Computed example of a mutant assay.
Amino acid sequence: MEEEELEKLKSMLDVEIDRVEEDGDKLTVYVPEGQAAKAIGSGGSVVRSVELVLDKKLEIEETD
């Protein structure tokens, strides 16, 4: 993942990101425990916005 895309991702999700795994057109973003709901947004609105901007499928996971 390019640095520019990572900065956009951090800005749009508005949570700390522990790590990002990229698998083709899918990104798995690991956020601290308790932050997944904020990263996903109301009704998944944040995830959909990020998917449109980055043109990749996004999955949010919490780390321990």
Rank of each mutant, 00 (worst) to 15 (best):
Q35M: 13
A37W: 04
S49W: 08
E2C: 13
M12F: 12
I60C: 02
P32R: 13
G44N: 06
A39N: 02
T63V: 15
E22I: 12
V50C: 04
R48D: 10
S49F: 11
E22C: 07
V29P: 01
V53H: 02
E21Q: 07
E4M: 14
V50W: 05
E21H: 05
E7C: 02
I17P: 00
E4H: 13
L6M: 10
L58H: 01
S42P: 00
V29C: 08
E62P: 00
E5H: 12
I17N: 02
D18L: 15
Q35S: 08
S45R: 12
Y30P: 00
D23Q: 14
V46S: 04
E16F: 10
E33D: 12
Y30V: 15
E61D: 07
V47H: 03
S11H: 10
R48L: 12
E16W: 06
E59R: 04
K26Q: 10
T63I: 14
E5G: 04
E7K: 03
K38R: 10
L58D: 02
T28A: 13
E16Q: 09
E21V: 14
T63R: 03
Q35R: 03
Y30N: 04
K38T: 13
V46R: 12
A36N: 01
D14C: 06
E3G: 09
K56H: 03
M1H: 14
E62M: 05
K57W: 08
K10F: 07
L27F: 06
K10R: 08
G43I: 10
D18P: 00
R19V: 10
K8P: 00
Q35C: 06
K38C: 04
L58Y: 04
D14P: 00
D14N: 12
V50L: 07
E59H: 05
E62D: 07
E61P: 00
S11L: 14
E3N: 14
E3R: 11
R48N: 08
M12S: 01
E4V: 15
V46A: 07
G44W: 09
